[in-house]
Design a binder for these strands. Sequence first.
DNA 1: AGTGGTCGCTAAACTGATTTAGCAGAGCAT
DNA 2: ATGCTCTGCTAAATCAGTTTAGCGACCACT
Lengths: 341, 341
Amino acid sequence: MGRNRATLADVARRAGLSKTAASMVLNGREGTRLSAEAHQRVFAAAEELGYRPNLAARSLRTRKTATIAFVSDIVATTRFAGGLIRGALDAARERDHVLLITETQGDATFEQYAIEAMLDRQVDGVIYAAMATRRLMVPPAILGGPVVLLNATSSDGLPCVLPDDDRAGRAVATALLEHGHRDAIALIGRNRLKEGDPEISLAARARLRGIQQALGDAGVTLLTESFCTEWLPEHGYAATRALLNRPQRPSAIICMNDRLAFGAYQALGEAGLSVPDDISVISFDDDPIAAWLRPSLATTALPHELMGRRAVELLLDGGAAEPSFVAMPLRRRRSLAPPAR
Amino acid sequence: MGRNRATLADVARRAGLSKTAASMVLNGREGTRLSAEAHQRVFAAAEELGYRPNLAARSLRTRKTATIAFVSDIVATTRFAGGLIRGALDAARERDHVLLITETQGDATFEQYAIEAMLDRQVDGVIYAAMATRRLMVPPAILGGPVVLLNATSSDGLPCVLPDDDRAGRAVATALLEHGHRDAIALIGRNRLKEGDPEISLAARARLRGIQQALGDAGVTLLTESFCTEWLPEHGYAATRALLNRPQRPSAIICMNDRLAFGAYQALGEAGLSVPDDISVISFDDDPIAAWLRPSLATTALPHELMGRRAVELLLDGGAAEPSFVAMPLRRRRSLAPPAR
DNA sequence: AGTGGTCGCTAAACTGATTTAGCAGAGCAT
DNA sequence: ATGCTCTGCTAAATCAGTTTAGCGACCACT
């Protein structure tokens, strides 16, 4: 890989100058008194030789590698991760940096290993990402340098990037209110564990709070709240079936995420009910399936790409230590309509 | 990041030996004549100081970085990518390597940039991955070192890892034959572009060939073949609706991927038809939605994780230059049944 | 004539590892 | 006593950059 590369010494020789001169010119050092002609000669020589500096040598001296560690619990393998990584990749490229990606799979041994591997490679900083928005403990080993938490917080007061689930909750509830839904709104996906333990989820609590606030402000209370042990289609399906067995049928359903909503669609379809004519549905995440469903599902998008980007920006450009909340845009789609009379 | 790390010189000093001795002991060099006691002292010193070698310094000398470049067109951001990356990550870790990930987004400028960034960092090899299984041209710049193509081939005779779509096609058709389907099997997802241009897709052609072979061997011909401009749910939906308008209703539908099958489910549901009692459905990819559908969708899984792993193995352990095909296991699920009489 | 300052540039040290070449001392044979 | 080999170890070079310290030439000023 990359044998025969021209070195700085080659460039200097060809330009008839010293390595020092060549180094200074190529790094655009201010305050050096090298002549315009010397500059020309160095640039020309570098160009002709196709010179590219050996970053290993450079970073040995400067302790900068232009490399960022992206350490995640398990995020890199889920479809949610794509956006986070792409955003981070883009922002890193703009700043001439590159991403070293590892995954701990939630395993302490792997984590230890991953972090050592990163530190051995002298990364300039660490982005520590979580799959589920949650609070976590940062391994002390990485605290020696810049760290940004992505989709997570900690008690160390580290800078972090989080989706604004609270505001998303309000947006979801408000969208229903705007369509005229009031007293027959059902909620699917309450979950004591997720709501109660910030180390498991911050999103559940924030979404719920946002929903309750917006409804409360309008003087509306939820018709029913269904608890689900997980946020998967099968749970949304079961909850919706149960919901339809109750005396009062809801005019709208809020699902805590799109997978639950997918399950809800299945149950509604089987029951012969039409979305949105009989029942409106709205949700969170903007999973790809949301747009594929018939009718397409209104939801609030997790802005993964922006979050990834923001994390890199915070890491390299510096930033406030208070949480950086990224807006979750509401995707208005076909699953919303005024309540049937 | 990682200031105050002990250096080899520190270890040597503490052990009362030279750097040379310390280096040799820690690298387990054979044929050195250092005493057992010297070994002890070096190990003890390294342990006590928490010594970890500076990889920048090491690689400057050895031209090895224990780092692999993972360059993809766009794969890192799709949910398909997760498995590829995870597999590669796992295999890399087992070999004490780490992954530098970049994405070209199909843009020549970005690709150029990404490759230079990798080569500047002296990666030991490159995994060049594509989102869609296809033939591509490898940028000459990376041919200076080991390269493995992942989910792609080229005309350079480079080692490559591909899913065995041909065999998957046979498996899919065979599964239907085993359930007793014969003369009423419909195929959704023919696509001239994908089938004709290996630079766009190898999978379409291979899947089709496999299906046709298995059916041909059984003396069966397809009832109908629907062409789709893309392999998205909406196209599967439209194709299925058209299919149901024809005089003879199929007893089974093969979809070229799960997203088409998702669309087919939607159309079948709307038409009041039951899967699998009225119509069996089988497909390719094992997208997460396949398991979420009701009834769950039989499909052949793209073994992303294994493929990623295989790519790293080929790269580091060396391997044959002929394509390495990875089996696509058949997931037998609820969408299969004997044809309704 | 001597002093000081600026200009344009370079030698050499330094980063932290690996690797080559070779040295001092012991043991043994001649 | 001399030469030889073997043992156990080390000095120094090397990788490819960055950075520090400073040198010689020229000019201006007193």
